[in-house]
Nucleic acid binder design. Structure first.
Length: 445
DNA sequence: TCTGGGGTCCTAGGACCC
DNA sequence: TCTGGGGTCCTAGGACCC
């Protein structure tokens, strides 16, 4: 929108946002150059799959990320759908972060392919944000072979909107280069923002956009003038406050370095829906093995276990239980999950099962002694499950440590439990694939 | 055209404590 | 018989982001 003619200081453009173009698809093309120039996407190829990342060649056909694969194939009959190799993307992501870190340690990743950076600590070095942006693009292109867009602005809101503006676009089926680096100068902020649709603001998705449209609010300039209390009645207090602030160009979100993870989980949509408690509990055990491993890798234990079931009509229900202690054992987690699933009406067939763990404690702070009063013969099924879970968490400790120890020394595939092996087989048909357990995954740690 | 899997945050009601 | 107010935690659901 405004190709920078000036060269702002870090005080005029303190926040940088950088976003890799078509990241997953681009990595696939780098690893297999024969894909170059072809419509390539990464995503689930089955009936229930969606597109995670689309090359620009695929976008020319109207294929977009988050689009169901069935639709994408219809729009682009020759579409190449790849299952996704997240260990590879993580390698590239780390190298991407390394390049950002060379500029400043004050950066915050969002997913694998985006970063916000706060440039203010570079004031003394006389760094010019626009020069820094072009230099990042050059290095990412030279060293990684990837393209990206850079946005600069007074806050995260403008930096992110600007990076979007910096990207290539498709006009009449043709790819048009973007400027690469865009700065929203304070002088143009107001007019720039006014012309955007409300949907382009952070936090406005399909549901909120529909509510806003119903209220006659289509453009950011409409939002900038709305009464916050009235808006709050429709979208909630917090949303109303942030939307009005954003619409006025105000965004006080900091660039947060080292954001702590608050939950880990595993979701799986089944190619064929599951029927009945038995099948679902069996699947939950596989989920528990994956989530427990992630917890131990992060050296955390979780007090809250949540199961989410989605039925074929896409309605979902969740059940959660918070324990008086933390778990990182798959059998301890599975005991809770099973009890939670028993409280769900499973008359309908189930297309998705998710298992999440949250309310983390440091492993060293997990005081199991406080829980000796638990009675496995209690009447309340939740108390019962908690007692069983505690017993497993305690009694498997030595085994877990031994297994983790062997894995540390000899790699992940060297030893495993039966449920993990079963799960491994099940996982092959999903995006996650078997690679997560392979030797490559270990090299990257 | 029919919606994945990794997450984050917000809301609202109820329980419980002081 | 009528009944507070604030704070925190837990549960269930919803929306959003990449």
């Amino acid at each position: 929108m405004n190709s920078p003619s000036e060269n702002p200081s870090v005080d005029d453009a303190p926040i940088l946002h950088i976003d890799l173009d078509a990241f997953f698809a681009s990595v696939e093309i780098l690893d297999d150059p024969s894909l170059k120039g072809k419509p390539v996407v990464v995503g689930g190829g089955g009936d229930r799959g969606v597109i995670a990342s689309a090359s620009y060649e695929a976008r020319r056909f109207g294929v977009r990320s988050a689009m169901p694969s069935v639709i994408a194939k219809r729009r682009c009959p020759g579409l190449i759908i790849l299952p996704g190799r997240f260990d590879r993307y993580e390698v590239y992501s780390r190298r991407f972060h390394d390049i950002i870190r060379d500029l400043t340690p004050e950066y915050e990743p969002l997913g694998l392919d985006e970063v916000f950076a706060d440039l203010r600590s570079l004031r003394r070095l006389q760094v010019r944000p626009i020069d820094a942006g072009f230099e990042l693009r050059r290095r990412i292109s030279d060293e990684l072979g990837l393209l990206c867009g850079v946005g600069l602005g007074r806050n995260k809101l403008f930096a992110k909107l600007a990076s979007k503006e910096s990207k290539p676009t498709i006009v009449d089926g043709r790819l048009v280069d973007g400027p690469g680096v865009v700065w929203v100068s304070p002088a143009v902020e107001r007019t720039w923002l006014d012309e955007l649709p409300v949907r382009s603001l952070w936090g406005v998705g399909p549901a909120t956009a529909a509510k806003l449209h119903k209220l006659g609010l289509r453009w950011v300039r409409d939002l900038a003038q709305v009464d916050e209390a009235t808006l709050a009645q429709h979208v909630g207090r917090a949303m109303a406050a942030t939307l009005v602030a954003y619409a006025q160009g105000e965004d006080n979100r900091d660039v947060t370095v080292d954001r702590a993870v608050k939950s880990v989980g595993h979701d799986q949509t089944f190619a064929t829906s599951l029927v009945g408690l038995g099948e679902i509990v069996q699947a939950a055990k596989g989920h528990a093995a994956i989530v427990a491993r992630a917890l131990r890798d992060a050296n955390r234990v979780a007090r809250t276990i949540t199961v989410i079931v989605r039925f074929d009509d896409l309605a979902s229900v969740s059940r959660s239980q918070t324990l008086s202690f933390g778990v990182d054992d798959e059998y301890a987690m599975a005991a809770i999950a099973e009890a939670l699933l028993q409280s769900v009406d499973l008359a309908r067939s189930v297309r998705l099962l998710a298992l999440h763990a949250s309310s983390f404690l440091d492993r060293d702070d997990n005081n199991m002694q406080l829980t000796f009063g638990l009675d496995p013969s209690a009447n309340d099924p939740r108390e019962q499950a908690e007692a069983v879970s505690r017993e497993r968490q305690v009694s498997h400790e030595a085994l877990r440590d031994a297994v983790d120890d062997v894995r540390q020394k000899f790699g992940r595939t060297s030893v495993g439990t039966a449920s993990e092996l079963t799960d491994h087989g099940v996982e092959i048909k999903t995006q996650r694939g078997s690679h997560a357990f392979g030797p490559e995954a270990d090299q990257n740690e």
